[in-house]
Design a protein around this nucleic acid. Structure first.
Length: 659
RNA sequence: GCCUGGGUAGCUCAGUCGGCAGAGCAACGCAUUCGUAAUGCGUAGGUCGUGGGUUCGAUUCCCACCCCAGGCUCCA
């Protein structure tokens, strides 16, 4: 048998006896690596450790504490989950169970249309740990299509996958070795699963996992199909990594805008109003007002004109725009008035802006014409999808529509992107990438040529911006492609922020035209764009980004002044009056409670600056400053110096925490 | 819309295997006057999500609905 030669990731080469496996290779490199190894990447293909190596190959050993390693162990943990469920529910059908970000899931159909309850998770968890204690090997076998069908004849979902592969489905190839070879992994004589692999060598290599929750999920992600019972879990390479992940989940929960909105008295969702309909309390109202005022100012500077439109309109408008045709399900049902005239709450602002464009004849000299509106729209979101301020049924978009010529389009888009990123940075978001969403199959209107041109223009502008660009094939709106700006927040989550959409359709549908230099009528290009997306959602993202510690310019209350004793209260009010004269949002809490208690209260309210004044300060005209995020109060600060500091910090959109 | 879990005081939650509803915090009152994350005492606060049903009696059991959370699907 010929020797096998391998090249390792560091470029070094090794020779092993014929028929050596990746596991043998790991052993040859070091006993520690052999013990850690979970799988291997052979010539770019992820494979089992036990698979024989070809005579010449490039091999990387996959260890647990790597992205690939975690993916393998999560996938294997999903198999153990399926085995545990089939042990506890004989006759259960198992569908698919992939690794996902941070964990895995598996979908089941239980006998008698049974359902998992939360309590079942504990039983399943215990069964999984028993399977891991048994240290069952994952043994790979390959079969013909026919044998595969026979092998899985009691598992209808597996049969369906094999049949689909046989029929040429590309999507299902992930589940098997190839279009003609069915691969399966056997753990015990009683459990095998259709799977491309690879898997960890044996179940004993797993164990740092936790089952998280039960959910319903449609077979193949289609709501017309049977709904399966899905179990989600998380799995990691070590006890510490699992613990760290659970801590991170707690951190995310601590930042949850719904919780902070309650704690900081910013907004609420009175059940009297209905799902997805928020009210902003005075404190949340300040954040919102300051945001909106700043946005308006920037839009004035950016050459936008301000328009206003009503919340309700006759059906005709949305028939013309095409929204009723495509999104009637997502609109509030109409009210009938005036002998059958149907009126709708508006789900979009764009048609109104087109009508403003059309209100008189337009000249090319007016273009680009940029119309801005904080437009409140209503969308009848399905009951299961509303979520805090991020997915609501009534929301206000910072919406604008730019009408320009085809020639102006490129430059306008480029400027727009600069404008968007600048505004987002002003709110403290700094880490961006762009996503280009292209033509949605089967849903799009317009010609291929128009779509290609629009997509190409957007791609050029996006590339020129110098940010990472990912393509979202088929993710565009029905009337045009879009660029969306994705922002990463303080704990690394990404949020879709601004969207910029090109639209050749609406001007056509509404027959909007301008007169050009050639004295002929031309159709303008329309650019839809919202920078915050919705004001509500943007506030939610900022709250979570800052964990409620809003930068000073956005804080509902910027300074709280506390006298040490009640005979310092007069001075406290004087200090507050001086700050208020500077436009600072300041309050005094009189000394009815011990100082420590009042400090604590202000800290919990995440107020940027707590000013404490006592005997020394009254005598010398100074302040004690306890800044948010600091455990080290400053004493004897001059009032004038503090006023300057506040002025600068507010103007620069800074925070007390910033260095 | 579908699956799972939930809704008890302003908030966070305990409790009732069907028999007068509980705590902490917050609120209010009185006292306390204090230099950087909880001063003390007292008072008040509830149709136990809503509506039906079973029962001598329902917050508890049953049914329907509303709302919330986590998923699925959807997101102009």
């Amino acid at each position: 048998m010929a020797d096998v030669e391998v090249v390792l990731p560091d470029g070094s080469e090794r020779t092993l006896p014929g028929n050596s496996t990746a596991h043998d290779l790991a052993g040859a490199i070091g006993s520690r690596l052999a013990k850690d190894a979970l799988a291997a990447v052979v010539d770019g293909e992820l494979t089992d450790l036990s698979s024989p190596l070809p005579t010449k190959s490039t091999v990387a050993i996959v260890t647990p504490a790597s992205d690939l390693g975690r993916e393998v162990l999560r996938h294997s943990t999903a198999h153990v989950l399926a085995q545990a469920v089939t042990r506890l529910w004989p006759g259960a059908h198992y569908a698919i169970g992939p690794a996902i970000r941070d964990g895995f899931y598996y979908d089941f159909a239980l006998p008698g249309d049974g359902r998992f309850s939360d309590d079942d998770l504990d039983r399943i968890d215990a069964e999984m740990r028993a399977i891991m204690a048994e240290d069952q090997p994952f043994v790979r076998s390959e079969y013909s299509i026919a044998d595969g069908l026979e092998l899985f004849k009691d598992q209808p979902f597996k049969v369906e996958i094999i049949e689909a592969v046989k029929a040429g489905s590309e999507d299902d190839l992930a589940e098997v070795a190839s279009a003609s070879v069915v691969s399966a992994y056997e753990n015990t004589p009683n459990f095998r699963d259709l799977c491309r692999g690879p898997h960890v060598p044996s179940t004993g290599r797993l164990g740092h996992f936790r089952l998280m929750r039960v959910a319903g999920a449609y077979w193949r992600g289609d709501e017309k199909n049977q709904q399966l019972q899905r179990i989600y879990g998380t799995a990691w390479e070590s006890k510490d990594a699992l613990a760290a992940h659970l801590v991170q989940l707690e951190e995310a929960e601590r930042r949850d805008h719904r919780r902070l909105g309650q704690e900081l008295d910013l907004f609420s969702f009175p059940s009297e109003l209905g799902p997805g309909l928020a009210v902003f309390h005075p404190r949340g109202g300040i954040i919102r007002r300051v945001m909106e005022e700043y946005s308006r100012q920037r839009h004035v500077e950016g050459g936008y004109e301000f328009v206003y439109s009503p919340h309700i309109t006759k059906a005709e408008l949305f028939e013309t725009s095409g929204h009723l045709q495509w999104f009637a399900d997502g609109m509030y049902p109409p009210m009938e008035l005036d002998e059958g005239q149907r009126y709708y709450l508006k789900p979009m602002n764009c048609p109104f802006h087109v009508l403003i464009f059309k209100a008189r004849q337009r000249s090319y000299r007016e273009l680009p014409l940029r119309m801005f509106e904080f437009g409140t729209v209503y969308r009848y979101e399905k009951s299961g999808v509303v979520h805090g301020l991020t997915r609501v049924r009534g929301m206000t978009q910072d919406d604008a529509h730019i009408f320009c010529t085809r020639e102006q389009m490129g430059e306008e888009l480029a400027n727009l992107l600069t404008f968007v990123l600048g505004l987002l940075r002003d709110f403290g978001l700094n880490d961006f990438y762009l996503e280009l969403s292209t033509r949605p199959e089967g849903k799009a209107v317009g010609t291929d040529a128009e779509w290609s041109e629009a997509e190409a223009t957007l791609a050029t502008v996006a590339t020129a911006a110098g940010l990472e660009l990912v393509r979202d094939e088929g993710g565009g709106a029905f009337y045009g492609p879009k660029i969306s700006v994705q922002a990463r927040d303080a704990i690394g989550r990404t949020h879709q922020m601004s969207t910029i959409q090109l639209d050749f359709q609406l001007p056509q549908r509404f027959e909007a035209t301008y007169v050009a230099g050639d004295n002929a009528r031309h159709q303008p290009i329309m650019i839809h764009r919202a920078l915050f997306g919705s004001v509500e959602r943007f506030i939610a993202i900022l709250i979570e980004h800052y964990a409620g510690n809003m930068p000073t310019w956005l804080s509902p209350e910027q300074v709280r002044v506390l006298g040490v004793r009640d005979d310092h209260d007069d001075y406290a009010y004087q200090v507050a009056a001086a700050l208020k004269g500077d436009g600072v949002r300041v309050a005094v809490e009189p000394a009815n409670e011990p100082l420590g208690a009042r400090i604590r209260k202000a800290k919990l309210e995440k107020i940027p600056y707590i000013v404490v004044v006592g005997d020394d300060d009254v005598k010398l005209g100074t302040l004690g400053i306890n800044a948010r995020g600091s455990n080290d109060p400053e004493r004897g600060v001059q009032l004038a110096a503090f006023r300057l500091r506040l002025r600068d910090e507010i103007a620069s959109h800074g925070s007390p925490e910033a260095p």
